[in-house]
Design a protein around this nucleic acid. Structure first.
Lengths: 118, 118
DNA sequence: TTGACATATGCCGATATGAACATATGATGC
DNA sequence: GCATCATATGTTCATATCGGCATATGTCAA
């Protein structure tokens, strides 16, 4: 088999720094493609392609306005990411890290004791 | 040029469902590779490879214990993701979505007015 | 030392992906 | 209709990545 599908979900869409950058700009409000091109410093086709990915996962919506297409952020698909990461919040808390260390030491000590009892 | 580097940061490491799955298991506590193999239903080499990626971005640490290698979660690299996503929290709040709609309507109205003044 | 067990690596095949460049599509104004 | 502006799409290239399979490495036990 081959590489797993990727660009199909928000996790992957957002794994691309450029796409995050685009979203960051859109967080400031709606924007036409050209403006994004200038602000993120990519070529127009590149921006359009990244926008396409973002569109496919629902992170942006488009609105036609004359010959421009106004892109707008839609944060909802980010919620699952937030929810998932949130469950690890305590995992980067130093107290818990420290606690883990202590538990480890205890465990290793026990093992040493067990070993000396054999 | 080619595809940008990916597996080098937490965003990408976590974009893989299998790797999230592995982290989810490790969230329950340290685990040797074999246990992970059984719990996530992948082949041993696959698990080892995913663990390698997770190790390279610092999401897990290893401890040798006899012939086993105990893997442990280290959540710190997830914090940047949390911080980034968090700034979009309001973006998936329905109230704000609704507010955006209103602002849009106002904007369009203004444009119509401007147009009729020309 | 030999053999079983635990894990990591190497290689291959199939494909997804990002960048660059050219070009198609579509709306607007003359 | 025609030129122009705004955006999307197609193609080619180089490479990253995942899965599968074989195999190397390292540890413990008899």
């Amino acid at each position: 088999m081959a590489r797993a599908a990727t660009t199909a979900d928000a996790f992957n869409a957002v794994a691309e720094p450029r796409r995050r950058q685009i979203l960051d700009v859109l967080a400031g409000g709606e924007s036409p493609v050209n403006e994004l091109v200038m602000l993120v410093g990519l070529t127009q086709p590149q921006v359009s392609k990244h926008l396409r990915v973002l569109r496919e996962v629902g992170l942006v919506t488009v609105r036609e306005e004359g010959r421009q297409r106004m892109y707008r952020l839609n944060g909802r698909p980010l919620k699952p990411i937030h929810d998932w990461v949130k469950t690890y919040e305590r995992a980067w808390n130093e107290r818990f890290e420290a606690l883990d260390e202590v538990l480890d030491e205890l465990k290793k000590k026990e093992e040493r004791d067990d070993a000396s009892n054999e």
